[in-house]
Design a protein around this nucleic acid. Structure first.
Length: 268
DNA sequence: ATGGCTGGTAGAACCAGA
């Protein structure tokens, strides 16, 4: 597989909504899709009780954790060597929402879980929305200073395009698709000339979603999805991408996450 | 029919997700 061929790399990102509750489907995903590296968001577990044995059994012996009790939490598990680079607090409140690593080939990999932002898209009455906007402002400052070839992945909690949501009209004032969030995401993208790999490989206006609510009676039939998860690459890194896809089928597995995994394949 | 569900933690007539 790819780890035996030194010039290819398969990187996955998945908001798992509790890595302990989903350990069996994470194992199934790793067995079936065999990424070299998996970035997890919403692990919901402290580092000292992270369920690492399954990962090590499958050969993911390089594990970088930034977890916390109950909420949030990110992790990177890898078959190839990774070195922790940084763990930034773009919300300035101590929550575990980012970890970055470097690969031996020089690529930097950044795994982020952007705050959801609460219900009301108005920071004067909803502090969580203000925190989300501030988080993006700090990411923009960080992004503008980047000089290293980077892959930025995770749950951005914004679906920017009309074809990234099941109904632009129904969601225009719903947090995740509001004009102020879409504008912030555009500024973040411009700050490093980030390439949106999702739309490089699945151009608009084709439907592309990564998240479907648990509340739908039949998520697939109603298909009221949003593209909240993303993989963005520095221009030089994007040129090396050979494939990118969302594994929608995982949303139908037993006790699923409400997010589907994303995969990008590279040839360096 | 975009909250109708789900997980963590407590042991809820909870909170948070998005």
């Amino acid at each position: 597989m790819s780890q035996t061929s030194s010039d290819t790399l398969k990187i996955a990102s998945w908001n798992i909504n509790s890595v302990r509750a989903r350990i069996d489907i994470v194992e199934r995903f790793l067995t079936e899709s065999a990424p070299d590296i998996l970035c997890l968001q919403e692990t919901k577990v402290m580092n000292d009780i992270f369920p690492d044995s399954m990962f090590r059994r499958l050969g993911y012996n390089h594990i970088i954790l930034h977890g916390q009790r109950m909420h949030h939490g990110v992790a990177i598990v890898s078959k190839v060597p990774i070195t922790e680079d940084d763990r930034l607090d773009w919300q300035a409140n101590g929550e575990a929402r980012h970890v970055g690593v470097r690969l031996d080939n020089g690529l930097r990999l950044e795994n982020v879980y952007v705050p959801a932002g609460g219900d009301e898209p108005d920071r004067t009455i909803n502090p969580k929305f203000g925190q989300k906007l501030d988080f993006y402002e700090r990411m923009i400052e960080w992004s503008a200073k980047l000089t290293v070839p980077t892959l930025l992945v995770g749950d951005f909690n914004v679906a920017p395009l009309e074809c990234d949501v099941w109904s632009h009209k129904a969601l225009i004032n719903v947090v995740s698709h509001t004009p102020v969030e879409v504008e912030l995401l555009a500024r973040l993208q411009a700050a490093h000339d980030w390439v949106d790999l999702g739309r490089k490989f699945v151009p608009a206006p084709e439907r592309l979603y990564t998240w479907w609510s648990y509340r739908a009676k039949d998520w697939l039939a109603s298909d009221r999805g949003r593209r909240l998860d993303h993989m963005w690459a520095s221009p030089a890194v994007a040129e090396k991408a050979t494939a990118h896809y969302v594994l929608e089928g995982c949303r139908s597995w037993d006790k699923p996450s409400d997010h589907a995994p994303l995969i990008t394949e590279f040839r360096f």
